[in-house]
Design a binder for these strands. Structure first.
Lengths: 210, 210
DNA sequence: GAATGAAGACCGACTGGTTGGTCTGTCTAC
DNA sequence: GTAGACAGACCAACCAGTCGGTCTTCATTC
C-alpha cells in the first residue's frame, strides 16, 4: 500500500472493468482499496475526477505514440504501419483503462469532456492526414474517401477492447501484424502490391503459414 | 399515444441515447412518456427489462438479415458483400438502439445477458464461417487468420455507431460501398483484383470520382 | 536534541437527495 | 361485475459527498 492514490486508481480500474462505472459505488472502491471516504476524497475531488484521470492516462499515451510515429517516419506507408502497430499495442498496456473509457466516457461532466474530445480529435485527424498524404503522393488509392477509410481503421482497432484477452489465441503482435496487412491491402493500389514487401517494416507472422 | 408500451420504448430510446441508461431515471421516463409509475411497471417488470427489449429488437434483426444473406447468395464474395451491406444499413434503422446496446449491455442482469450473448455469437460465427468458406474455395486469401480478420470486419462496422450521423457528409449507402470495397481488397488475393468487378454486387459510388 | 506547531494524510459517522420498485386504488371496456 | 390499464403516494435502500476530528511527519525554534 505504498501510494494510496495509485492504489485507488488500480483497484477502481478492476472494479469498473468488471461492473462498469455506475456498477461500483465510492463505498465499494473505498472498501476494496482498504481506505476510507476521507482517504478517497482527499485524493480526488469527485468520482468523476477519478474517471477523468483514467481516461487521460491512456489517451495521452496513444496520442504521444502516434505523433512520434508521424515524425520518425517519412513515407505514409511506414507511418500508417507504425501508427497501427503502436495503437494496437496500447490495448495490451491499457486494456481496462480503455474498456472503462468507451463504456463511460459519455457520462463525463462537460468540464472534463471538452479536454478529452480534443485529444481524441487530434488523434483522429492525424490518421486522416496520413491517409490524405499517402493519396497525394500516389502511394495510397486516390479513390477512397479519407474520412470513411480512416474511421474504418479506427473502428477495427478500437473494437479490440471488446474481444482481446491477454491469454487468448493470438498475441497482440500477431493482431497488429494482421491489421497492418489488412489496412495496407485496402490502402495500396493493386499494382503496388507486388512491391509491397519493400515498404514493409517487417514481414507479418502469418505470411509463412499454411 | 396509441400504444403506451411502444411509446415508452421510443421515448426512453431518445433519452438513453442522449444521457445513457444510468443517466435517465424511471421517473424521467415516466414524465417524458406522459404516463405514471403504474403505467410503466404495468408493461415492464423492471428498468432492466426495458433495456433487454431494446437490445433484443435490433440484434434479432441483424442476425435475421445476415442469415438470409447467407442463404440467398452462394459465393463467399457475394455473401460477405451482402452481410456487410445489410449490417451497415442496420445503423441507419436502429442507430439509437445500437448506441444504447453498446453503452449499457454490460449492465444487463445475467438472465438477460445469456440470451443476448447467444445471438451475438451466432452472428460472429456466421462471419467467421463465410471467411473460412471463401478461403476453402480459394476465393479469399488463405494466409489470413479468419478470427482476427473477422473481428476486424465486425470492429469497423460496429464502430459506426460512434460517428455516423443521418445528416452527415456521407450516406449509409456510401459507407457500405467503401467498407465493402475495403474488405474485398484485403480478402481477395492480389491477382484476383483484376476480376473483382465480375464478382461485385454493384459498383461502389466512389469508383468514378477523382 | 527536546519541544513546538503546522500541514498533509487519512478516518468514518452522517446527510440530503435520489432511485427503482411497490401497493392501494380508480377508471374504463366489455 | 370482472379484468386489464393506468394513477400516484409512498418507501427502503443506497448514493456521492461533507465535515469535525485524529494521527503522522518534519521543519523550526530554543
Amino acid at each position: 500500500m505504498r501510494d494510496l492514490r495509485e492504489n485507488i486508481i488500480e483497484t477502481s480500474l478492476e472494479l469498473f472493468d468488471r461492473h462498469g462505472f455506475h456498477g461500483v459505488s465510492v463505498n465499494e472502491i473505498v472498501k476494496a482499496s482498504q481506505t476510507s471516504k476521507g482517504g478517497f476524497y482527499h485524493h480526488f475531488t469527485s468520482k468523476d475526477e477519478l474517471l477523468y484521470v483514467i481516461h487521460d492516462t491512456f489517451i495521452t499515451y496513444v496520442l504521444k505514440e502516434a505523433q512520434a510515429a508521424n515524425i520518425v517516419h517519412t513515407s505514409p506507408v511506414e507511418k500508417i504501419q507504425a501508427i497501427i502497430r503502436s495503437f494496437v499495442h496500447v490495448f495490451d498496456l491499457y486494456k481496462s483503462h480503455i474498456s472503462v473509457f468507451y463504456q463511460e466516457s459519455n457520462y463525463l461532466k462537460p468540464e472534463y469532456e471538452i479536454n478529452m474530445k480534443g485529444k481524441r480529435d487530434q488523434f483522429k485527424h492525424l490518421v486522416f492526414d496520413v491517409i490524405r498524404e499517402g493519396q497525394a503522393t500516389g502511394e495510397f488509392r486516390k479513390e477512397l474517401p479519407a474520412e470513411i477509410t480512416g474511421m474504418a481503421i479506427l473502428g477495427m482497432v478500437n473494437w479490440i477492447y471488446k474481444w482481446y484477452r491477454k491469454d487468448g489465441t493470438y498475441t497482440i503482435d500477431e493482431i497488429a501484424d494482421v491489421f497492418t496487412d489488412l489496412v495496407l491491402h485496402f490502402l495500396l493500389p493493386v499494382e503496388e502490391h507486388v512491391h509491397v514487401k519493400n515498404h514493409m517494416l517487417h514481414i507479418p507472422f502469418f505470411y509463412e503459414m499454411k
